[in-house]
Design a protein around this nucleic acid. Sequence first.
DNA 1: GTCTATATCCAGATAGAC
DNA 2: GTCTATCTGGATATAGAC
Lengths: 208, 208
Amino acid sequence: MKASQMGRNKEINEQMKDERKEQIFSSALKLFARRGLSATKISDIATAAGFSQGLIYHYFKSKDEIYIQLIKMAFAKLNSAAEQLDALDLPPLQKIKLAYQSLMQGLVTNEDASLTHLLIATAAASDSVPVKAKQIIQEQYFFPYQVMTRIIKAGQKTGSINNKNPKELALLFWSTIRGLSIYRAVHTESFLVPDVDIILEMFKHKEK
Amino acid sequence: MKASQMGRNKEINEQMKDERKEQIFSSALKLFARRGLSATKISDIATAAGFSQGLIYHYFKSKDEIYIQLIKMAFAKLNSAAEQLDALDLPPLQKIKLAYQSLMQGLVTNEDASLTHLLIATAAASDSVPVKAKQIIQEQYFFPYQVMTRIIKAGQKTGSINNKNPKELALLFWSTIRGLSIYRAVHTESFLVPDVDIILEMFKHKEK
DNA sequence: GTCTATATCCAGATAGAC
DNA sequence: GTCTATCTGGATATAGAC
């Protein structure tokens, strides 16, 4: 067999392996988000992904490893979105508006996005996640808060945002988002997206 | 032995039993809220409460039973508070203000209150709680939303609250509370209570 | 009422056939 | 690569001594 062929086969195999892993991640996300790490059985994940329990171990070393990877991916998504928002050339209040709208858009149209937020919320609140996951959470959790605080401070400088404590405002923004994420992940049917203008009232500068 | 004595002993025994149960509930609340149902071992609860693992079964039939009782108690507390708020003779906006302030007060000064909120949030979001717990959640979860919606509608009638969709406003109120509860339960140190006036801006009627 | 010892079960992980 | 069978550990719940 020629070397070039071997290279191609290897590539194809790699690709198939990645697809399998994707399947596993997708099933595991649903289960971990809604049932938690320890209540989710490897066999649940395998069944949901459509193959046998033993095969999981061909792709992952352990249940914890899948969980840790998912946490990594969840934060990567959220924080790169925050980064992009930060970099946009928009007035601060518009950034907040856009952030809220895209987050809600994700919650409503994209079940995975919704579950990703739920996973982050539960993982962050949990005392029983693997050490490695805990480390990732500690390193990454505050990034969106920092971005939001920065945006708020910018808005206060130009006068479009009121002079409340920027950390309190940022905390409120993300608390609201997390609260809504949880609600939405659970009450899929009865979720109606609160009008962005209500949210913005918390931030707007008020004339005396 | 006289009947009156037996009665008294029985009473005292009952009381001691209740105290023991209280100990168990208190330890279990911490653990269930922070680690979840299935990651919490009976032996963890026993150790935290200061006695042997086997003894738990003298007071409770199973781990699930403890959990179910705790869920019941958590909703009883929250919903009776909501009921009291509803009954108060205050203008709607003042009720909202008071609700937020007492909730935050609880979060900051009372660790159990904080954990109770966390327990409700995680239990409601979870797919792996005992059926009985799920039933209780379904029956009781929406009560605070209903109360808040009613208060908001009252305020809209008198003109003190703006004319946004009352269900959206109620959803926002409780989402914010839940988000803050989670944050507080986890980041005990860095929690600063957002000024109530920021919250109220979402509800206030704005002059054109 | 409380403890220790143990039966039982179940889930994670491995081994080995195909 | 995929499956079935199995090992192993650990946790719930029970039994029985004190």
